Amino acid sequence: MTHTTVHAYAAPAPKAPLERTTIVRRELGAHDILIEVKYAGICHSDIHTARAEWGEGGHFPIVPGHEIAGVVAEVGSAVTRYAPGDRVGVGCFVDSCRECENCRAGLQQYCTGELGNVGTYGATGRDGQVTQGGYSTHLVADENYVLRIPESIPLDAAAPLLCAGITLYSPLAHWKAGPGKKVAVVGLGGLGHMGVKIAHAMGAEVTVLSQSLRKKEDGLRLGADHYHATSDPATFEELAGTFDLILSTVSAELDLNAYFGLLRTDGTFVQLGLPEHPLPVAAFALVTQRKSFAGSMIGGIPETQEMLDFCGEHGIASDIELIRADQINEAYERVLASDVRYRFVIDAATI
C-alpha cells in the first residue's frame, strides 16, 4: 500500500475550528479496500461530535465524515467484491461484531456484540485504534462494510445517501410506505428532503410538516403532495387522524402529543432526529387509537445497498451545495442556521 499518511481536516479539540492536517491510515489487510475519497457530505452528527455536544468526551483530534463517496484505488489480497476503479461508498459504520443475531440478519447498525457497531469516526475499532472519517483524501475499509454506488447517481450527490438517504429509507421500508399510505415528514432539511423524494418514489401520499411555508415550493418540487406550517394551530385541527406514518427528522423539542393527534388508528410516529432533552409523552395520546411511538437508526449493509439501488433506479440523489475543504467551518455555521438546501458536500480534491 502506497498511502499511509494522508491529508485530512480534523477538529483538534472540542469546539475548535477544523483545520488541515495529516493522519495515518492502516496498512491494507487481506479484506481491506483503499478508497480514494472524492466527496464527503456534512451531517449534523459531524458538528455534534466535533463540538463534543453528545457528552461522550470524545477522541481528539477527530476527522468527521460518514457520508463518503469515492473510487477504489487498491484492494487487499482476498478482496472479491470490488476492483480498482469501482464507484463505492462508506456510511456511518465500518465494522461490527459479525456474530450476534442482528449482524447475522444484516442489521449491523443494531449490533449487540461486544464490539458493537464501529462508527466511521470517533469509535475504537477491533485493532484498538480510533476510527477517523471521510474528510480526508483516502480511507481504508473492510470490503464487507463498503457499498456500491450505481453509475446513474453522480458521486457528489450520492455521498449524503450514505447517511441521510438510508436514515429515511429504512423506516419507510420497515413501516411499508407505498401506494395507499399517507406519510408525513417533519422538517425539510438534509434528512427531510430525502424522505420526501424516497416516500414519493415508493408511491405514498406525502405531506411536509414544516415550521413555516418558506420552503413550500421546494417541497412540492421534491415530490410532496401537501405542505403545511406547524406554527399554524389550524394545521393540527385540519390534519387530525390523517397519517399512517410520521417521520420526525428534526432535533427540536416538539410537542409530541400534538403530533400523535395527527396519526390515524394504528399509525406510527418515528423519531429520527435526536433532541437534546427527553420529550414528555402522554400515554392517553397513544392508547386511545393503538398508536405507536418508535425510533429508527440508519440501516444495515444489505438495506443500505438496497437503498442505493432503489435511488439509482428512480433517479434519486441528494440536493447538494458543493464546497471546498477550507469552507467547512463556514458550512458548519450555515447548517446550524438552516442555511443549506439541502446538504453540504466537500470536494475531497481540495483537502
Rank of each mutant, 00 (worst) to 15 (best):
L213P: 00
R214E: 13
R214L: 08
R214G: 04
K215R: 15
K215E: 00
E217N: 10
E217M: 13
D218N: 14
D218T: 14
G219H: 02
G219D: 01
L220F: 01
L220E: 07
L220A: 06
R221D: 07
L222Y: 03
G223Q: 05
G223A: 03
A224R: 01
A224Y: 00
A224N: 02
D225C: 03
D225A: 09
H226E: 11
H226D: 10
Y227S: 01
H228L: 14
H228M: 15
H228D: 05
H228Y: 15
A229Q: 09
A229W: 11
T230N: 01
S231F: 06
D232W: 13
D232R: 15
D232L: 08
D232Q: 13
P233C: 05
A234H: 15
T235W: 07
T235D: 01
F236H: 08
E238Q: 15
L239V: 11
L239Q: 11
G241P: 06
G241Q: 09
T242E: 00
F243H: 01
F243E: 01
L245G: 00
L245M: 06
L245N: 01
I246S: 00
L247A: 06
L247V: 12
L247M: 07
S248K: 05
S248N: 15
T249Y: 00
S251R: 07
S251A: 14
S251C: 09
A252K: 04
A252L: 03
E253S: 14
E253K: 13
L254R: 06
D255G: 07
D255C: 07
L256D: 08
L256M: 08
L256N: 09
L256G: 07
L256C: 04
L256Q: 04
A258N: 12
Y259Q: 07
Y259R: 03
Y259K: 04
Y259N: 06
F260A: 10
F260V: 05
G261Q: 07
L262Q: 01
L262E: 03
L263I: 09
L263S: 00
R264Y: 05
R264V: 10
R264M: 10
R264F: 03
D266Q: 14
G267P: 03
G267K: 03
G267S: 05
F269C: 07
V270P: 01
V270E: 02
V270D: 05
Q271A: 10
L272T: 08
G273C: 05
P275H: 11
P275A: 08
P275W: 09
P275Q: 09
P275E: 04
E276P: 07
E276M: 14
H277G: 04
P278A: 06
P278H: 06
L279Y: 06
L279V: 12
P280R: 06
P280K: 05
P280A: 08
V281C: 06
V281R: 05
A282N: 15
A282D: 14
A282M: 15
A282W: 11
A283S: 15
A283T: 15
F284G: 11
F284C: 07
V287Q: 04
V287K: 04
V287T: 14
T288D: 09
T288K: 10
Q289G: 11
Q289T: 08
R290D: 12
K291F: 04
K291R: 15
S292N: 12
S292D: 11
S292L: 09
F293C: 03
F293A: 04
G295S: 13
G295C: 13
G295M: 13
